[in-house]
């Protein structure tokens, strides 16, 4: 008697399932936020880069084009999506599961936590053969997310709102609420443009590291990474 291919697969899967453990970690709103945010950051980075250093000029009638206009409209629109997304993400930290709080709260007083940050560092430096398994972010990832993303997002929202306020006018809510940013850099808003642009490069570097780490860990570590941010389920491989 021969078994069907499906039966063979089923058998194979059952045999394997003894090794696999899965846990639901990232809830739907959080995953949705992550991917909307990824889109927003991409659009913001590209349009932002081009606002600071525009493409070669276009000829013809000025009334026939709106290149910088569209770039700015896109930048501002996605900045709203990013900013409201961030507010929503903070809300979710309160109502979501405990993993939703990881990027906002670091257990910096815990020696154990710092020890595991160090352990994760050693894994990246090829000193340790095997990383620990975590349901949420590993301690080093958590630290990086906090420093680069959480702090970075607040920084970009504040400097961005200040610059947006310049465009809206000095009586606008944005200028009234965020002009302290100009004071903080010494009064000349040109510096805020430069520092906001520095934030762009920090974001680019964060995205490079984030994507690399996600792919590498997905392949190399003992748990799933990329599919987790799609389905919400963390798979342990051993």
């Amino acid at each position: 008697m021969t078994t069907t291919l499906a039966e063979q697969d089923d058998f194979e899967a059952k045999r394997h399932s003894r090794l696999l453990k899965a846990i639901y970690v990232y809830e739907a709103p959080l995953r949705l936020w992550h991917w909307i945010n990824a889109l927003a950051v991409t659009v913001l980075a590209v349009t932002g880069y081009l606002i600071g250093t525009p493409l070669p000029g276009i000829g013809g009638e000025a009334s026939a084009h709106y290149m910088m206009g569209w770039l700015r409209v896109l930048h501002f629109s996605f900045a709203w999506i990013f900013a409201f997304g961030f507010v929503g993400r903070i809300y979710w930290a309160f109502v979501g599961n405990r993993h939703a709080r990881q990027i906002f709260l670091l257990p910096i007083t815990s020696a154990k936590w710092w020890g595991e940050v160090w352990h994760e560092m050693k894994w990246y430096l090829f000193i340790t053969r095997e990383p620990y398994k975590y349901v949420g972010h590993n301690p080093m990832a958590q630290l990086m997310m906090f420093l680069f993303f959480t702090i970075g997002a607040v920084y970009m929202i504040c400097t961005g709102c200040a610059l947006y306020g310049e465009a809206l006018g000095i009586d606008s809510w944005a200028y009234q609420s965020f002009s302290w940013v100009f004071t903080a850099v010494g009064g000349n808003s040109l510096q805020v443009h430069n520092w906001h642009r520095m934030g762009l490069w920090v974001t680019i570097i964060f995205v490079m590291l984030h994507v690399y780490a996600a792919f590498r860990e997905d392949i190399m570590s003992r748990q799933s990474l990329i599919s987790t941010m799609v389905s919400g389920w963390r798979m342990f491989k051993d």
Binding site: P54, L55, P56, G57, I58, G59, A62, S63, A64, H65, Y66, M67, M68, G69, L71
Partner: peptide, 11 residues
């Protein structure tokens, strides 16, 4: 300003 919004720049 119209040239700025249009993306028309002196290089």
């Amino acid at each position: 300003r119209a040239h700025f919004d249009a993306g028309q720049f002196a290089e």
